[in-house]
Amino acid sequence: MILVTGGTGMVGRELLGRLASQGRVRVMARDPARVAGSAQAAGSVEVVVGDYQDPRSLGLALAGVRTAFLVTRDVTGGDDERFLKAAVGAGVRRVVKLSAAAVLDGQADDLITRWQRGCEELLRGSGLEWTLLRPRAFASNVLAWAPSIRSVRTVRALHGSSPNACVDPRDVAEVAARVLTEEGHAGCAYTLTGPEAVTAVGQTEQLGRLLGVRLRFEELSLDEARAALTRRYPQPVVQALLESAERQRAGAKAGVTDTVAALTGRRAGSFGGWARDHLAAFARGE
């Protein structure tokens, strides 16, 4: 049995679709109604209620599980610690953890990166077999621009000329599916990127060409970016994201790996390919 957490996220939804035909799969969610996709509709994925804050629910969700895919988001809590304790108690063999590429950057000392490093250390010290997936930013992060693209044909972002080798979340899901179902990945850490670094200005231009319209890019000041982020996140997370943006401006996120190709046998998907397949999210409903 494979347990998937984070099944409502960008990677989790794609992962469930890939695992549904490969054997017994269970997805844990606080709200099972939010678990979407054809796999669930076909009844090929077992959906269970589980909450990182509730050790009993974790134990039930992990019963009979051999391998688990772990996604956590609470940078202030002990979700990883509680999950791993329950996994050990349930006799789980291996945990595949979704981490982040920033953990390898010695200059990265923001809250989110420190948290991810701590989570990795917990897993490595748990006694379980482990595999770490360290993606760069998801190409799908640009979905945050969709409302302003649809309404005023404008993208607003900080440091528009800074490069990021963003990765298609479908590639992360494909790698995760292979790692979860194949042998030979225990004790491995995989950094996942797209095939090239792109900038927000470049992404805006690509989206405009695909939509057949002219999109305007508007550079945000640091204060404007802080205000926009504050509407969505608590202040410690806002500060971490701004520090991360500064590292990107310095080129820390431009490096490309061939890991996706090595593990899947095909080239990593480009930002343009992802955008083409999700263009409806940016198009006006006219």
Rank of each mutant, 00 (worst) to 15 (best):
E121V: 11
C119I: 08
G17V: 07
G6W: 03
F69T: 03
G160H: 00
R153Y: 06
R232W: 01
A144T: 08
L62F: 06
T257K: 08
K253I: 05
D31N: 11
A41Q: 13
I149Q: 12
R267L: 14
H278R: 03
A173Y: 02
T193W: 06
A245C: 06
S57I: 08
G272M: 12
N164C: 13
R94P: 12
G64N: 09
T257C: 11
D258Q: 02
E120T: 07
S221V: 09
L58M: 05
L215E: 01
P147M: 08
S151H: 13
L70R: 14
M28I: 00
D51L: 12
T181G: 08
R216T: 14
L70C: 14
A29K: 05
V201W: 15
T257D: 01
G6I: 04
L104V: 02
R267Y: 10
F69C: 02
A41H: 04
G7Q: 02
G37P: 09
A108T: 00
G9V: 11
A146W: 12
S161K: 13
T113N: 09
G50E: 12
E183D: 15
D258M: 09
G212H: 00
R178S: 04
M10V: 10
L111K: 06
G212A: 03
G9L: 11
A86Y: 08
L70M: 14
V48S: 14
V45Q: 02
A283T: 04
V167D: 00
T204Y: 02
T72K: 04
T230A: 13
E14Q: 15
L122W: 13
L104Q: 15
Q203D: 10
L222V: 01
E218S: 10
L242F: 05
Y190P: 02
A157R: 07
T67C: 12
Q53V: 07
G78T: 08
